[in-house]
């Protein structure tokens, strides 16, 4: 490699190239930020309830069993499309009731079944979580997941 370039050339290419790619990345990030706010997540307003629901999702570390838009742990089903899977995406009241029924049946204690902890959530909290999952489900994720199974 001695013939091709010197160490200081290699160093300058590293610096210059990195700055170049950082700038492109930042530019695309700005555009993506605007696109996410105005386009891909704009079909449903980001209400107070949705924001509280996201916090409940975080406080219970749900992502360390479930995946959401495919990210998280792979121990439990995908929930980015759970409201579609349950057929309640456009029925907030039924979504709440279905989620409440599910949450309150945990843990199942069936031998050989993966166990979900029994979280003691109030109706208000379950409603918030339900609204958050509906909101997430309505995001334009470019057609992912391929089917309802998630």
């Amino acid at each position: 490699m001695r013939e091709v370039m010197t160490t200081s050339m290699a160093r300058n290419i590293f610096y210059g190239g990195s700055i170049f790619f950082v700038l492109i990345f930042l530019g695309l990030s700005v555009h993506s930020h605007i696109y996410i706010v105005n386009t891909s997540t704009a079909s449903m307003p980001l209400t107070e309830s949705v924001v509280r629901g996201k916090r409940i999702w975080e406080e219970h570390a749900c992502v360390n069993c479930h995946s959401l838009h495919g990210e998280g742990a792979y121990f439990a089903p995908e929930v980015g499309n759970v409201m579609t899977r349950w057929g309640v995406i456009d029925k907030p009241k039924e979504a709440f009731e279905t989620l409440k029924g599910w949450m309150e049946a945990q843990p199942s204690r069936i031998p050989g079944r993966r166990q979900m902890p029994g979280y003691k959530l109030t109706d208000e909290q379950i409603r918030d979580l339900s609204n958050f999952l509906i909101w997430a489900d309505k995001t334009d994720t470019k057609g992912w997941p391929p089917n309802n199974a998630g």
Binding site: F14, G17, S18, F21, V22, I24, F25, L28, H31, S32, Y35, I36, S40, T41, H69, G70, E71, T139, D140, T141, K142, W144, P145
Partner: peptide, 20 residues
């Protein structure tokens, strides 16, 4: 860095980011 910075894009396929 030339590959890794824009390679971040492989996490942006299905999270609501633009198609490019």
């Amino acid at each position: 860095l030339f590959t890794g910075i824009l390679g971040t894009g492989h996490h942006y396929y299905w999270i609501g980011a633009p198609g490019y």
